[in-house]
């Protein structure tokens, strides 16, 4: 009853019927591709994750077995651990240094700030395979330039790509190199958003530089820290090309991230049900993270 009463009113406010074909023309091309290539794969993965399927023939319903397998398979769990270690390591480098560089360049009296900002950001546009190629040679244990430079500081030959720990560190180095300038930009945007008068009143109170840093700057942009942390975590779960090209996931699988495991299980070994279960878990996990990011980061996303 209520609906009948409201209907004409809503109609009036809403669209111009004579624009219907125009609206379709704007919406339809996007919508078709979006449904086919973005939404359908999600539905596909959810459905397939409860089945066993080699890519041919019938789907075999297995209930939650693929999910149980993921949490009980030590290899699968170890790829999650690898992902978190490498992603966490990257953040341990990019967050402090990204913040430090943004803070450094926030000083208006520093000459050539624009030039430095450009320099720091350039690695971000370098293709990951290129980064992997250059660093593989730079980190060569015998003839690499990194070990050569370290030798002047009395540091002996480091087996960069040959032991699990150093191999992870190598991946972290490449990813940090590419991501540092990117992280810096977020901090720069955050720093520019801090009202100047906070510092002025701190000056009147006689605060020194360090006090201003710890009592004004960092608290004012703590959301940026969380925001960058989430972006970094989401990025870590997409880690693939760098370890794939530099270490092929080794040694002893130490640099095999979950993406690589999902791809080898799925497309490599035709275990599509299992790979789909992993995809669903990743969608859920990263979706929740992204939701948190939206809630806290609404402002930072538009400042830049």
């Amino acid at each position: 009853m209520g609906n009948v009463l409201r209907l004409p009113l809503r109609r009036k406010r809403v669209y111009y019927p004579y624009h219907r074909s125009a609206i379709l023309q704007f919406v339809l091309p996007f919508l078709v591709l979006y449904v086919v290539f973005r939404l359908w794969p999600v539905v596909y993965a959810i459905a397939l994750s409860f089945h066993e399927w080699q890519g041919l023939g019938d789907w075999n319903f297995v209930g939650f077995r693929n999910y149980v397998r993921f949490f009980t398979d030590t290899y699968a769990v170890s790829t999650v651990v690898n992902t978190l270690i490498m992603g966490g390591g990257e953040l341990l480098i990019t967050i402090p240094f990204g913040f430090a560089l943004a803070y450094l360049l926030a000083d208006r009296k520093l000459p050539a700030r624009g030039l430095f900002r450009t320099l720091y950001f350039i690695p971000r546009v370098v293709a990951l395979p290129v980064g992997a190629i250059v660093f593989t040679l730079m980190l060569h244990h015998d003839v690499g330039v990194v070990n050569y430079i370290l030798s002047f500081f009395g540091i002996g030959n480091i087996p960069w790509l040959r032991t699990p720990g150093f191999a992870r560190l190598s991946v972290i180095m490449v990813r940090s190199w590419i991501g540092l300038g990117f992280v810096m930009i977020y901090f720069t945007a955050g720093l520019e958003g801090i009202p100047e008068d906070l510092y002025e009143s701190a000056d009147i109170d006689g605060a020194n530089g360090l006090q201003k840093l710890f009592y004004i700057t960092i608290p004012m942009i703590r959301r940026v820290f969380v925001f960058v942390g989430i972006i970094g975590t989401v990025g870590a779960f997409q880690l693939f090309p760098v370890p794939f090209m530099m270490t092929q996931g080794g040694p002893s699988r130490a640099t095999t991230p979950i993406m690589m495991y999902m791809l080898t299980r799925g497309i490599g070994h035709n275990q599509y049900g299992f790979a789909s279960a992993m995809a669903v878990l990743l969608v859920l996990f990263l979706g929740i993270l992204a939701l948190v990011q939206f809630r806290i980061g609404g402002r930072e996303r538009t400042i830049g």
Partner: peptide
Amino acid sequence: IPIQVLVVP
């Protein structure tokens, strides 16, 4: 949803 995790489906 980062599109990369949907590579298999």
